[in-house]
């Protein structure tokens, strides 16, 4: 899966789940500034696991991503790992 497609899927999922304004979804945007809290963080993991069919919660370590750009990279890494397996 190309990075552009990952970004598109992540953004689409976040807009739908959290009613975010798509124009705010830049790689620099952090989750707090987007108005997301700890409950949203858990629900975001569930949403993205379903969207990409990857296991995020058991592969995630604190600090893996703090911004949206980091999240795109993290998902890309998981997809690559999954494909290699």
């Amino acid at each position: 899966m190309q990075k552009e497609e990952i970004i598109k899927i992540v953004n689409r999922a976040l807009v739908k789940e959290f009613e975010l304004d798509e124009s705010l979804l830049t790689p620099e945007a952090d989750f707090v500034s987007l108005g997301l809290d700890s409950l949203d963080a858990v629900d975001m993991v569930i949403t993205l696991e379903q969207a990409f069919k990857v296991d995020i919660r058991n592969n995630y370590k604190v600090g893996d991503f703090g911004s949206l750009g980091g999240l795109y990279d993290f998902i890309e890494k998981l997809i690559k790992q999954k494909n290699n397996v």
């Binding site: 409950l39 858990v42 629900d43 569930i46 696991e49 379903q50 919660r57």
Partner: peptide, 14 residues
């Protein structure tokens, strides 16, 4: 439904 199908990980916090 998610519990019965052993997919509790799909249940959102809310």
């Amino acid at each position: 439904e998610k519990y019965i199908n052993k997919h509790l990980e799909q249940v959102k916090t809310t």
